[in-house]
Design a protein around this nucleic acid. Structure first.
Lengths: 349, 349
DNA sequence: TTGTAAGCGTTATCAT
DNA sequence: ATGATAACGCTTACAA
């Protein structure tokens, strides 16, 4: 259990002072000849600067990643890519999850302070507005990914074009002859929720279809809310013939509910869900999806935090929206004449 | 951007020395009256010890989590639970992924050294044996979860009862009349791979069924190896009538291949896969699975590292095996007379 | 039981 | 361009 070489050891074997070594470690200016000797010494000793010591000086290269729920394939992939991108830049990631619980999130934010992280990438629950901004006040660079909070106007955000994507999905269904399209979306407290609803309504409006507020369900991210919304939607007197599950966090529970109810897709109900993953085309029928370019989300997020941390970015919040791709599969089809539920519904000729 | 209170501030407002504060922070012995005053001061100032400073003294409470691939729902859930369990104990988690690449893993291990983490929970790729043991020599407590490396005998391991689980699945299929059962397993360099194969063979032996080595495929964790193995297995002159995908990392690609080949399940081929997730019962037909108690794996892993880090555990490696549950669904059924491929196979009467 | 003081490994501030 | 040296915030012998 012999100890690792320190910067002092390097300085000694290179015949220079610690400050010189520190300079070559960072981007300081050092005489070419000297630098070479130091580099050699570093290699020879296998020296690696200790992250803890750096962080103590506020010079650490560690970011916090606050995700809602790793159980959701979408967030899992986001984590995967972010860790990947961070690693490529020599940055470590401390992972924390909120389980969509603002209380846990608050605790998490407190912990983040102790960690001396320089930046944070997060999918906020929607609450803890004060805590988030306090984090920023302490100098921690913050960037929201996927979701954001309207009240926090001064924060960088990376997400897909939520409105446009929702509109695309809606238009696709309209083109298929549907005029009662259900929408299960995220909470109105997040930009994701409002944007997707906006896109949906815009598409409806353009097609001259009146938008029925009953068909729009803004469900919270956590819990079985997705399933409940599905059930509620289908038990409407005039149930939708098509459904868009625009709440990424709830696709699984929504789909499960649909299958459990024995709804025939797309005969009884056309379905489009936000977020693609390897399983969506394995279920029957294969699902039409909005595929989010997760790698882009990740890359931009990491670039942003790091850019901020190194002060290489102009002031003012950066809003980056990447394009999502609509993938049409078998779960969305032409509207059939029959009503989706067995109400013995009288058709209006 | 005013600075956070330090331990010295607390000491001052409590009218004691820093060491006393440090003692109440940790488990030190302090006079009840004094302790109370210190606690009050801490609360009043909202003091929180900085992780970096602690780690510099080797007293940090941070663990490294080295996972293969967050894209795989199994590992994602493992991460989710481990982060959860860690948080419950006031421990932070630095996440790193290897993408099943030993080279990246090596890099990761180096980084772990700089991080001054006290412990590491990992799913090793199978390589980097020297590096892993060096990590241990430096005093980092290591526990493998899910997978392990045979050569590293002195390491704690938490996993499911791989042999028993594989045996259960095999017996289930045998009971269904199958005698040619394919097995796609992990690499032989990991305990997971060998154990699952062993269980499978044991079950076969008990039933008096000769084990055909051609039916067993130990495929590497990364890449599309699972799909290839499936294809190879089914193009055998005497293809299996049942298949166990015992390589958790490859279920997705294996299933995809099966669907793409248009294999009818379970008519042409009965299938059982290791690892359950929300989608397995949404695909058609719903998959029979070995459900791994991920929460148990996580809890034990965290308990182990922390136990080691605090020296509260007897010496000698700890091998914890939790029980997995076999869930029978529609993908496994009685063997049909027909051969799974259209070879116009001559039946041997 | 409590206090003093010496680190822990870097970075940052000055001089030189 | 380089070198002392003081922080950084905490833990931990060692004293009292």
């Amino acid at each position: 259990m012999k100890k690792a070489p320190t910067i002092r050891d390097v300085a000694a074997t290179a015949g220079v002072s610690v400050s010189v070594v520190s300079r070559v470690l960072n981007d300081g200016s050092v005489a070419p000849a000297t630098r070479e000797r130091v580099v050699a010494a570093i290699a020879e000793l296998g020296f690696r600067p200790r992250a803890a010591a750096r962080e103590l000086n506020g010079a650490g290269l560690t970011i916090g990643l606050v995700l809602a729920d790793l159980t959701n394939p979408f967030f899992a992939r986001v984590a995967d890519r972010i860790v990947w991108e961070a690693r490529a830049r020599g940055v470590q990631v401390v992972l924390m999850t909120t389980q969509e619980d603002p209380h846990i999130e608050a605790e998490t934010l407190a912990t983040l302070l102790d960690r001396s992280v320089g930046g944070v990438i997060a999918t906020p629950t929607g609450g803890n507005i004060d805590q988030w901004s306090r984090l920023q006040e302490v100098g921690v660079d913050l960037v929201f990914v996927d979701r954001s909070i309207a009240a926090l106007e001064n924060t960088d955000v990376v997400s897909i074009q939520n409105d446009a994507s929702a509109a695309t999905a809606t238009e696709h269904l309209i083109g298929l002859g549907h005029d009662r399209i259900g929408l299960i979306s995220g909470p109105l407290s997040t930009s994701t929720g409002t944007a997707r609803i906006a896109g949906y309504q815009a598409a409806l409006a353009r097609a001259g279809i009146p938008s029925d507020t009953e068909l729009v369900r803004g469900v919270p991210f956590r819990g079985g809310a997705g399933a409940d919304a599905v059930a509620a939607l289908l038990s409407l007197p005039e149930p939708p013939t098509a459904l868009i599950v625009a709440n990424t966090a709830q696709v699984q529970s929504s789909m499960r509910q649909l299958y459990q109810m024995g709804i025939e897709i797309p005969q009884q109900l056309s379905v489009i869900v936000f977020d693609d993953n390897p399983w969506t085309e394995l279920v029957s029928p294969p699902l039409s999806v909005i595929r989010q370019p997760i790698d882009m989300l990740a890359r931009h997020s990491v670039d942003l935090v790091l850019g901020r941390m190194q002060g290489k970015l102009p002031v003012g919040p950066r809003i980056i929206e990447v394009q999502a791709e609509f993938v049409s599969r078998s779960s969305s089809a032409t509207r059939s004449v029959a009503s989706p539920t067995a109400h013995d519904a009288v058709s209006h000729p």
